[in-house]
């Protein structure tokens, strides 16, 4: 999914770069409001987690394996703004340190895999969650459906970019059907794994799942003699 240099022409790449910078500026602004700089170590570790999870192979069929893209997973776990920032940092580091994804295509990759996947996927997550009852199972199902469709959304974004400034050769409809077809299959894997990961985190630390924050009882901290257990002086 990482677009290399030369796939999409320079004007489209630069335009995508401008969209990416604008989108990330909004994310930086939003996270600065709600998180402040104290949570930067957490964001860095979340980005390291997204990177590691992309190296984790899961079985697909008959011994072949795939890996997670993690855009929607990050958005459901830490929220769409911080999730987008983390995935974008992963893409930046992959392009600079590992030559993975073209430097001129960094804007395109951030748009497809961070902005479109995380925000589009998170919007779908909220929509599906609203249609289902207020339970943990609904959060799991919603994150799975959203993650699967998020991958398809990213492939649609790629198709739009190809139509605007692709290297040509094949017609847009051929590329669209091939890309979307392949990514529907990838999406099934992505959705299944994302749902399973979210359910695993919900089982032990439900407080760490941003997308399930509405399910947690609102607890107040009470300090005083009334909370002292019986028999303790």
């Amino acid at each position: 999914m990482h677009i290399p240099d030369g796939f999409i022409d320079a004007p489209t790449s630069l335009a995508a770069g401008a969209v990416a910078v604008t989108g990330l500026a909004v994310c930086v602004h939003k996270t600065a409001d709600s998180l402040e700089e104290r949570d930067i170590p957490l964001a860095g570790l979340t980005a390291a987690f997204v990177f590691a999870v992309q190296m984790l192979n899961f079985p697909v069929a008959s011994g072949t394996s795939g890996h997670l893209l993690g855009g929607v997973l990050a958005a459901v776990l830490v929220g769409p703004y911080l999730g987008t920032l983390c995935v974008s940092v992963v893409l930046l580091v992959q392009a600079l340190l590992f030559a993975d994804g073209g430097l001129s295509a960094l804007g395109l990759n951030v748009v497809n895999m961070a902005l479109v996947t995380s925000f589009g996927g998170y919007a779908l997550f909220l929509l599906v969650r609203r249609l289902l009852p207020r339970t943990r199972a609904s959060v799991v199902v919603a994150s799975g459906v959203a993650a699967g469709l998020g991958v398809v959304l990213a492939s649609l974004a790629f198709t739009v970019e190809y139509a605007l400034g692709g290297a040509g050769g094949a017609s847009v409809s051929t590329v669209a059907s091939a890309m979307v077809g392949v990514h529907v299959l990838i999406g099934i894997g992505e959705g299944t794994i994302t749902a399973l990961v979210v359910s695993a985190v919900l089982a032990t630390r439900p407080d760490l799942v941003h997308g399930a924050a509405h399910l947690l009882p609102h607890r107040r901290l009470v300090v005083g003699p009334r909370v002292a257990p019986e028999g303790v002086a």
């Binding site: 570790l45 979340t46 987690f49 590691a52 999870v53 794994i193 990961v197 032990t204």
Partner: peptide, 15 residues
């Protein structure tokens, strides 16, 4: 997937 979930919790707690 359970490993990935554990990895997230461990990463977050390490953070």
């Amino acid at each position: 997937a359970a490993s990935a979930g554990t990895l997230f919790i461990r990463s977050f707690e390490r953070g």
